[in-house]
């Protein structure tokens, strides 16, 4: 056992920690922290770096059917309670990614391929290509708040149904998660639509739409003017969304939004999350934030005599 641990440490694994082990849609995770899409995950090397930092799984930056440059800068701005970004989904495009990645099942942790398209059909095409790389899961980015393509989709039940159904059909048995937006009237209803259309999981939530204006120049700071709010400011909204989605669906939830500490992750799990997305925390604490969050989770569990996350999952409900 000691030797095995040393090998794992050498390879960049955390020591085997059973108390945090999690299964998401049949995919085994050494811990429930998952790198959220849009942070660093543009190459295998960067994914490997985050795995070394302790992440249980990696979600790649979203890819679509074509190569994209993204929005003009500034692309990101850190405000007092979080971050606003309008990077604009730059990416090498799915075809280049196939040549670049070759496959996605040969890294030390499960890789989740995130996809988007401009039309419902595009989602289907990209899903099929992504599936050819054998990711552990496919996440449908149906919810970016500052892209013209996603606005007609993310609050529309019929679009969510059609996209989820098509992606599921083209995913060749790979589990599919629908990433939903908080910028909607009733996220639980839309989660139920995705579940009925065949989604294996719900990722809740994407960023909230926001803006920052510089007083001295009287100019919106982001090049795109509006952007997505992430980080601690988003967390209460994310916890509420996860709580509501948990009441509506039976499929697992990847609770994402503002998780920066172990206690944040515990809170998300109490709201009903199976796994926990972590993104902006990489800015506050660097790529090793995953190990830090896991250590903090373990410390909380030991202190509160909790042996596994199943004991507390959804425990905030029915109170």
């Amino acid at each position: 056992m000691q030797i095995l641990r040393e090998i794992h440490v050498q390879r960049g694994y955390c020591a085997v920690v059973k108390m945090l082990s999690t299964t998401l849609c049949g995919v085994k995770l050494r811990n429930p922290t998952i790198l959220a899409s849009g942070i660093l995950g543009i190459s295998k090397d960067s994914a490997q770096r985050i795995i070394k930092g302790g992440a249980g799984a990696i979600t790649l930056k979203s890819l679509c059917h074509e190569e994209r440059k993204g929005h003009p800068g500034p692309n990101m701005v850190v405000i007092d309670s979080g971050m606003l970004n309008a990077v604009g989904l730059p990416g090498q495009g799915m075809d280049n990614a196939i040549a670049d990645f070759e496959r996605l099942d040969d890294l030390a942790a499960p890789i989740i391929g995130s996809i988007f398209g401009y039309t419902i059909e595009d989602f289907g095409i990209v899903a099929k290509k992504m599936a050819s790389l054998s990711p552990a899961m496919i996440e449908i980015d149906i919810s970016c708040p500052h892209m013209s393509y996603s606005k007609p989709f993310y609050a529309d039940a019929e679009s969510i149904q059609k996209i989820t159904r098509l992606v599921k059909k083209n995913a060749g048995g790979i589990p599919v998660s629908a990433k939903l937006s908080p910028n909607v009237h009733n996220i639980a209803e839309l989660a139920l639509v995705a579940e009925k259309a065949g989604a294996d999981a719900i990722t809740a939530i994407n960023t909230a739409s926001g803006m920052k204006i510089d007083l001295e120049t009287r100019t919106p700071l982001l090049g795109n003017k509006t952007g997505g709010l992430s980080g601690p400011a988003l967390k209460p909204i994310a916890v509420r969304c996860v709580y509501e989605v948990y009441e509506a669906v039976k499929i697992p939830i990847v609770g994402t939004g503002g998780v920066t500490t172990g206690e944040d992750a515990i809170e998300m799990i109490m709201a009903g999350a199976t796994a926990v997305g972590v993104g902006t925390a990489c800015y506050y604490h660097g790529p090793d934030v995953f190990s830090r969050i896991c250590d903090e989770m373990k410390a909380w569990m030991k202190k509160n005599k909790v042996k596994s996350l199943d004991e507390i999952r959804g425990s905030a409900h029915g109170k």
Partner: peptide, 20 residues
């Protein structure tokens, strides 16, 4: 380089994030 915050990943050289 797009962000300078160590987030966007565009400035990667291998697994080194150039901006941070």
């Amino acid at each position: 380089m797009k962000c300078g915050y160590g987030i966007c990943g565009n400035c990667l050289v291998d697994d080194k994030i150039l901006c941070i």
